[in-house]
Design a protein around this nucleic acid. Structure first.
Lengths: 282, 282
DNA sequence: CAGGAGTGATACCCAGGCGGTATCGCCGCC
DNA sequence: GGCGGCGATACCGCCTGGGTATCACTCCTG
């Protein structure tokens, strides 16, 4: 199987439309049809069901979509990591660390400080990204190591070390009736009238359906809460440096959040290993 | 990057010789040279150092070799898993389980028995393989799930559940002076004169250098020990069904061996999930 | 030191495959 | 029934990947 075929199939499987997929790929529709047909012939399995209106994935197609994405990520990672290795060999070596913007600020600052003090420490370039993006960055080689948060982020497929565990708090507009409580329960927070939980984007950038407002980062979130348009449940560390107009109340039965440091398996980078060592020693 | 280029590069990187690599790939040498040169040009990094006698990997080349192997494995897995999904959709669904031949016999038998008794259990095809091969089978999609043994097998990159932990025993020819001892220490076993530890093949099929005899499976091992040509340190469970002429003596300070069940991350197969559930409940 | 063997790079040619345009066949829907 | 949307098919041209022949360089050797 050629990378080209994989890319073509993923495009069609995501668009569920040959024309749009071809457009996205920058080619005409006929070659795309042929390529997919060839793929199906060689695999001996129908990947798509051509209905009169658009197409749908078959069982095999669903499997191939997942596997093809992983394979394409691996190829992209191979390219990126090789380029970075060449750069590190000739210029300044560096580690790319991905972290969720607005989360684990203190821990991140401490980690960078401790690691930088080590002998032989290299530069750490920090990439702050939206929620869930770190996993993609690691998969595609755009980051060497990342801070993830269980159970939100999917750590499957990476090597990880637990760094920190904490409870969660509800963020409420100051002055809200519940904001004077010493603690809350999950069910109470999700049932607050007129203060829905916000909707975060999926990895592909689209938003799930629901009543809450769409948010993309921590700033938008806190602003919406201060405006009295939403509430949220976030890890305790999210209350540090809280803007005025917000109150944090512990949620006793919310799942505990564990911050972990994650890196691709079989990573041979000594810099990453040192960084992980520094992190676990915190 | 195209799969073709990755395959070509891996061939050259493994052979460290353009001619032999081309032969292995079934093409002539000039196109291979061109393809590698193109790859280096597009990556902007030298991957190989052409010495007057043969070639050597650069730093970037080493990185690419590792990443390219992973990417090619992912592509092969994509193909295999899609084919198997198509088969399962039309014919009899099955789970492919990889296990080291001659290890964890009892546990494996029990697992198969318990799982088969479950409602909705599908057929489990067992692939017995040489030591360390399970990881490759899992990576390339030739197996859906595997029994691995820490610390021998590398579980990085898989989801795992611990099943069983056990100590290790030394296998000695019956009648050997040490065979009457109630227990031994690691240093004593490795230092036995005229009874070297055997050499197991590496993933690529070659053997490391050393004094011990080459062995490929459990039968060869026990035969060599019975002949008085080697001794070995194996998990306790390896003593079950021991052929005559062998004695097992516990090695107190040998690392404990943990049998784990492993599967590729993001596996969506319910059959695998059921099998894992049955295994952990043992 | 000249010649030869071994190895990778270059020059040049050919053809298969990939992509493009034009068109068809099929199905819903005003 | 005509029309529009969508995927498949037919056909063509060109690019690129692969083949053969040969070169350039470096050791090794007599």
């Amino acid at each position: 199987m050629e990378t080209r075929e994989l890319r073509y199939f993923v495009a069609v499987a995501e668009e569920l439309h040959f024309g749009r997929a071809a457009q996205r790929l920058g080619i005409a529709q006929p070659p795309l049809s042929r390529a997919i047909a060839g793929l199906e012939r060689r695999l001996g399995a129908p990947l798509l069901e051509r209905g009169s209106r658009g197409v749908a994935l078959t069982e095999s197609g669903t499997v191939l979509l997942r596997e093809a994405r992983a394979a394409l990520d691996a190829i992209e990672a191979a390219e990126r990591r090789t380029r970075r290795a060449a750069l590190a060999a000739t210029g300044r070596p560096a580690v790319l660390l991905a972290a969720k913007a607005g989360a684990s600020d203190e821990l991140l600052a401490k980690l960078l400080g401790v690691y930088a003090a080590e002998p032989g420490a290299v530069a750490v370039d920090v990439v702050l990204c939206g929620p869930g993006e770190q996993v993609t960055l690691l998969c595609t080689g755009r980051a060497d190591v990342a801070l993830l948060h269980r159970p939100f982020d999917d750590t499957a497929g990476f090597d990880t070390e637990d760094l920190h565990s904490e409870g969660q708090v509800a963020l409420l507009p100051a002055g809200h009736p519940l904001s004077t409580r010493s603690h809350l329960r999950l069910a109470e927070v999700t049932a607050i009238p007129d203060l829905p939980l916000p909707r975060w984007p999926r990895p592909d950038g689209t938003f799930p359906d629901g009543p809450g407002p769409q948010v993309r980062d921590h700033t938008q979130l806190t602003q919406l809460i201060a405006l009295g348009r939403a509430c949220a449940i976030v890890p305790e560390s999210g209350r540090t440096g809280l803007r005025s107009g917000l109150t944090a109340v512990p949620v006793t039965d919310a799942p505990r959040v564990t911050t972990v440091i994650a890196w691709p398996p079989h990573s041979r980078s000594t810099a990453v290993a040192e960084l992980v060592r520094a992190a676990t020693a915190l």
